[in-house]
Computed example of a mutant assay.
Amino acid sequence: MADRRLQVFHAVAKHLSFTRAADALFMTQPAVTFQIRQLEEQYATRLFERRHGSISLTPAGELAFEYARKILALSDEMDIRIGEMTGEMRGPLLVGASTTIAEFMLPRVLGEFNALYPQVRARLIVGNSESIEGQVAEHTLDVGLIEAPAKLSGLESRMCCEDELQVICVPDYPLAEFQVLRPADLADYEFISREPGSGTREITDAYFAEHGIAPESLKAQMELGSPEALKGVVATGLGFAIVSRAVAAREVALGELRGIPLDPPLKRGLYLIHPQERFQSRVLTTFIDFARRQLKEHAA
């Protein structure tokens, strides 16, 4: 119900780009420019400085942006609360998840949630843990599922379940003959690692360091941005990787890869994160409870 000009202004101020704002709002750039011009005429002041192909907020624009955020948040809250008075579960739900969770755990959870609440429009955004945490903190996402507790202030973390990681390699790789592997056993073999910022990378680095092996001393061959990419490289026989058991369950069952537990075991919690706010929509609170319950059951 918020004024359309305010929505357009907020998008331009957020992106500091008329083009990106137009894309986000599914509008043409001239239409966005027209709405901003109308708002500037209403207040008889410039809200943006335009120079050398870029824009920035004027002092009046900074003030307007602060109020726009508050007004639009209250407008969204009003829409949700009035909708909930009808007893319906409906509306958008923006879910972010780290790559491992998004690819191997969350699809089933989202499918089951949609079957129960077909009027809820869930959208999944995938990134590494660091990226998802940042987007939840910025209120770009309603809720995130990541592989460590949130570090940023203003976020609440709730542990869903425990996930065990293991070494994977091809059946004819030298490590495949081991029944269990200690950290020291891995130091002389080619390591295929996740990228910095990944929850998996963070926990494996900490695991090696805890057991007296500097992560930078490992024979790292490459850093990759997804579990599927890790499996693809490992399948060539180039080296080993450390991944969630869920990531390689199918390939291990088919005998394409060998999964070897670590000793001591390497386990981590999977966490739901969301802003610490007094108001949460019924859709969000229902999804948080549902996802925690389902992930715990699937991990058992």
Rank of each mutant, 00 (worst) to 15 (best):
N114A: 07
E223T: 14
G225C: 10
Y207T: 03
A97N: 05
L16P: 15
Q119P: 11
E77F: 05
E228A: 15
P174K: 10
V109R: 09
S129K: 12
R46F: 09
P196N: 14
L39K: 02
T204V: 06
L272S: 03
T33G: 15
E202S: 10
G197S: 11
G87P: 06
R46N: 01
D76T: 12
E138G: 14
L39S: 04
F178Y: 02
F18I: 11
S131W: 00
S244T: 10
A11G: 04
A299Y: 04
Q29R: 15
E147Q: 04
Q221N: 06
G83K: 09
V252M: 02
Q179P: 01
A206L: 13
S17G: 07
Q38W: 02
R158Y: 12
R5A: 00
L141G: 06
L152N: 04
L266V: 07
R268Y: 05
T140G: 11
S193F: 06
L124Y: 11
F240R: 07
S193K: 08
Q166P: 08
P149M: 14
I36W: 00
R108C: 11
F26S: 15
A241T: 04
R46L: 05
A176E: 05
E251C: 03
V143R: 01
E40M: 10
R69P: 13
Y67Q: 15
M1G: 13
L181V: 03
E297S: 07
A13T: 01
A11F: 12
A2F: 01
R268M: 09
E40N: 09
S226P: 01
R123N: 11
M222E: 14
R258M: 00
I132K: 01
Q29D: 10
L16D: 10
L155I: 07
E103Q: 08
A300F: 14
D163G: 06
P264V: 05
E133R: 03
Q166K: 08
M159V: 00
A102Y: 12
K151E: 15
A246W: 07
A60H: 10
E216F: 13
E277N: 12
E195D: 08
S281T: 08
L94Y: 05
P59M: 02
A2Y: 12
V167N: 03
D263A: 12
M1T: 09
E147G: 13
T204H: 03
L218M: 02
R121T: 01
V252Y: 06
E190I: 03
G255S: 04
I288K: 14
L230V: 05
L266A: 13
I192D: 01
F178T: 05
L270N: 10
G87R: 02
E297K: 05
